[in-house]
Write a protein that binds this DNA or RNA. Structure first.
Lengths: 100, 100
DNA sequence: CACCATATGCCGCCAACTTACATATGTAAA
DNA sequence: TTTACATATGTAAGTTGGCGGCATATGGTG
């Protein structure tokens, strides 16, 4: 899993969000380091939904603009956790932070 | 930077190594999780040398077999550290391990 | 009027990884 | 002795996912 994908899942950790809200949330979570291109975002959402890591939970129209809300599935939550653990372990190989 | 690349650099942290030694060291460091295909390895070595993150430090022939030894450059060491910090921070977003 | 924020989406390109193949020696097992 | 595996390096073709650019549409601000 690559970084943009990881942060997209991470953005859905606390609550379901629609595409654009994910965009801003990812920037927030990464402290501005990751700013998703919309091409990356919407293609990733389709792919992750196909893979069953996220799912559409609501379609609404606000001010004439469509909003499609996505939420993590059980699989998605597990994959996100696993990925975080993997990264933490990989980081420790170099940082040698507490042999845990 | 993707995982295979990260572990290739990490394998050179303590001392210079030749390709095949990097292969086995990566498996060791990742506890068997990452087993590099030779295609990935040798192409990555070329690329990383081109980018100045690693450099050839010695060419030798042992038992009729060539060995090309690579070492981290200053840039490579810095890039590796930066990547490790980035991953640790990204992992914390999900794991919320000690606000540091 | 132009521009930006909000909101979604497509298309072509490219970098990096994967799979498979190719080559060569030394050693251990069948 | 011949088969197979560890050691050692490399190339070629194919896949994936992220990037940049473009398109579309509304509402608010300079």
């Amino acid at each position: 899993m690559r970084e943009p994908t990881y942060f997209i899942l991470a953005a859905l950790q606390d609550e379901p969000r629609h595409g654009y809200a994910i965009l801003t949330r990812v920037a927030e979570l990464s402290q501005g380091r990751v700013t998703l291109a919309t091409g990356t975002l919407y293609q990733a959402l389709d792919r992750l939904a196909r893979e069953g890591l996220i799912e559409v939970v609501r379609d609404e129209v606000v001010n004439g603009r469509a909003r499609r809300h996505y939420a993590l599935t059980g699989d998605g939550r597990a994959a996100l956790r696993a990925e975080a653990v993997r990264m933490a372990e990989a980081a420790q190989v170099v940082l040698r932070v507490r042999p845990a």
